[in-house]
Design a protein around this nucleic acid. Sequence first.
DNA 1: GCCAACGTTGGC
DNA 2: GCCAACGTTGGC
Length: 157
Amino acid sequence: MAYWLMKSEPDAYSIDDLKVDRRIPWTGVRNYQARNMIRDQMKKGDMAFFYHSNCKEPGIAGIIKIAKEAYPDDIKPGDGRKKRPKKNKVLKMNADPANPTWFVVDVQYQRKLKRVITLTELKSHPELEEMPVARKGNRLSITPVSEEQWNFVLELE
DNA sequence: GCCAACGTTGGC
DNA sequence: GCCAACGTTGGC
């Protein structure tokens, strides 16, 4: 079993939204590195931190579980999709259904953390300096988390 | 709103 | 294939 960190802008979709919806397809990932992780590495049963990005208090807000492994992301904005697309942004869709480029996994709500563990706090611990989200300039929306990092973060809660 | 740190695009 | 220009992410 592997651990991950998945970013979402809470204005677009927050841990509280997922608490209501319970389970959603994690649509809209359009970065090849993140795509490769979704398609090739994420397994059913893997756990992930739900991270709030680009907001007042960036940090880890909850825990989710991978409920279904990768399948083509043919979920168009507005087409039963829960995550709201960014305004003024046209999402590239799969051109050839037989040879998809973009994939999605389903995630299942596990729990909300008692408090948001902020990015500032994550950065303050030397034990987490290798954690991608705590590194300068990191932009990937999906990053791996080691078991040690996972357990360390949960101890902070 | 600024801008660093990338990723992508397209001319050559 | 190189790389300059451009676009995006996301903290601050």
